[in-house]
Design a protein around this nucleic acid. Structure first.
Lengths: 328, 328
DNA sequence: TCGAACTTTCGAAGCGCTTCAACACTGAGA
DNA sequence: TCTCAGTGTTGAAGCGCTTCGAAAGTTCGA
């Protein structure tokens, strides 16, 4: 293993000089700097992360707690993680993937000085991890928006605004009765933050626009077909659909189109999902992109800012935007 | 921060005794052990990971290079990662998620002593990372099966056997003309290892069974519908389908069923995908589960074994198994 | 010419842990 | 009684790095 001492010897300087060349924390003459850098390159030196973290009391690692259970929204989770990892590297950080999504894992990472900060995904309204985090003394950012905002920095998509946007669009297309085909029943009934916020925005917008809006939980498998069938049978007047359910989307889109054709009207669907998912489903009027990768990147930016400049905790909601009609 | 010295003082023993209690590397009397453990608990001590890695020259971290690009097989990637993370924790390891999927990232992690070993996913037939790995001096396991097996340990699903199994099943169901609806064209044309192996097994089994088999690349979006349409039009005699394309599966299943109904026969589909994906798609005859989580776990087990007992590199292929008919 | 004020480089003290050699005991065998 | 093996515990030497205080060298104004 090449150590900083080897580099120092080769460059004919002291160990501390090498260290200062690398960190830039003290002025070093150009000539010396060149010599040291050449030595570093030619020896292929890279500093021992453990030694560095021991001496500097920081690891340059961020812990990421991601919901690894398969199920809803794999694409979204994946893209958020991608955004986090990519952006972290930009800032010179690496990502430690935390296993279980409990408080224990967070504590282990923090107290063992394995990470400088923590990023927690899939936060629920009354998540016990929030308390854990505040007791930990490590900076942290939540991806998600818990109820009764505590003084914890959060980053999320503005689901409420997305609800409004979808309704506005469907109304503009001339639809008077609108249904939100949403998350699976288990997500709805846990009152997961994003599902609640979406429904809230959706219903408020319906009322503001003077149109009829209903919210329906929907399994994310093929069973979604039955759900949609039931909705369309119960109220044949519904012609506008706002779908937020990645797994169900292909089934739902097909079903709605078929039944619409059969009864002779033209239902419209606005989907809320990542862009590439929308693109792979035919027959969508429009879609609202969940900017999953951007969410991950934003959360990472925020935590890096807190780490470097001690920035204040803040809540950041990324605004929704309509994407033009997808696959015809 | 609580250090080992605090624990030692509280327990009235030396630092080294505390260390030996934790590592179990030397005999310690039960009485002393109890006292130390009580001190550890009451102080909430957890050792500094950096200090530990500096002194012991091992990090208890495994680097995982996962293909984070969205696209094909998000579920599979996700499940493999889950398997890896979960199993690693069982063995006392944590996972460092490597950003870009190039050699640089591997070198950075290894040479910086950030990890004890490397796990590399999505390996292609002639992947340059294989050479990088052998030059690194760190144990590593590939998830995937590169061509011309080098002396690198590999874990993967036995795609070739899966090809045989699917054909056997379709033949048993009475189908005489069979099509493999496979990966997207870009995957096929890169000669990605798994796609090749699947096709090889499929074609060999067709020949052995004396049935007609053809292989078709297929986009993983709704465009897959056109592909299947074309296949069924070109050769109306094809009634058995073997689908290995997660994104296309819902579309393909629907299309095949519809056209089959229209022309009055009963095509059968065997899908190759994770179990829960299969369950969410209606109309599958059977499916062959890709045991993604098990693959991740197996790879992790293998690398841990190499780390602990210096086990020999080996290739391990997980066998396919038919899962009973899915959603009716 | 002298010292103040810089600039550039260095020495050494840790950071918190592991581990080796060695020490202090105990009990058993000679 | 003395030695010897075995058991349990300790002191101290690092592991490779950062960083502080200070030394050495330079420049400049008085």
């Amino acid at each position: 293993m090449v150590t900083i001492a080897d580099v120092a010897q080769k460059a004919g300087v002291s160990i501390s000089t090498v260290s200062y060349v690398m960190s830039g924390k003290r002025a070093i003459s150009q000539e010396t700097r060149d010599r040291v850098e050449k030595a570093i390159d030619s020896l292929g030196f890279s500093p021992h992360a453990g030694a560095r973290s021991l001496a500097s009391r920081s690891t340059n690692v961020i812990g990421l707690q991601a919901p690894l259970r398969t199920g809803v929204d794999v694409h979204v989770v994946m893209q958020i993680v991608t955004g986090v990892v990519t952006q972290a590297r930009q800032h010179g950080y690496d990502i430690l993937l935390l296993a279980s999504d409990d408080s224990k894992a967070l504590q282990r990472a923090a107290k063992g000085s394995m990470v400088d900060a923590l990023l927690v995904m899939d936060v629920e309204s009354d998540d016990p991890r929030i308390d854990t985090l505040s007791g930990l003394g490590h900076p942290s950012v939540l991806i998600g928006l818990p109820e009764g905002r505590r003084a914890v920095p959060c980053v999320d998509f503005d689901f409420e605004a997305a609800g409004w946007l979808a309704v506005d669009r469907l109304v503009a297309l001339g639809h008077q009765r609108i249904a939100l085909i949403g998350s699976p029943p288990e997500v709805m009934s846990r009152h997961t933050s994003y599902a609640d916020r979406l429904a809230r925005g959706f219903l408020a917008a319906c009322e503001a626009n003077g149109v009829d809006g209903t919210v329906h939980a929907c399994p994310s498998s093929a069973e979604s077909i039955a759900t949609v069938d039931a909705v369309m049978t119960d109220d044949p007047g519904i012609t506008g659909f706002f779908v937020h359910n990645e797994g169900a989307l292909p089934h739902v889109a097909t079903t709605i189109a078929q039944r619409g054709r059969r009864r002779g009207d033209e239902p419209a669907i606005v989907a809320l999902c990542p862009d590439d998912v929308a693109r792979s489903v035919p027959g969508l009027a429009d879609s609202i992109a969940v900017p999953a990768e951007a969410i991950g990147a934003a959360a990472t930016d925020m935590i890096c800012e807190i780490l470097s400049s001690g920035a204040k905790p803040a809540v950041r909601l990324l605004p929704p935007a309509l994407t033009g009609a997808a696959t015809p």
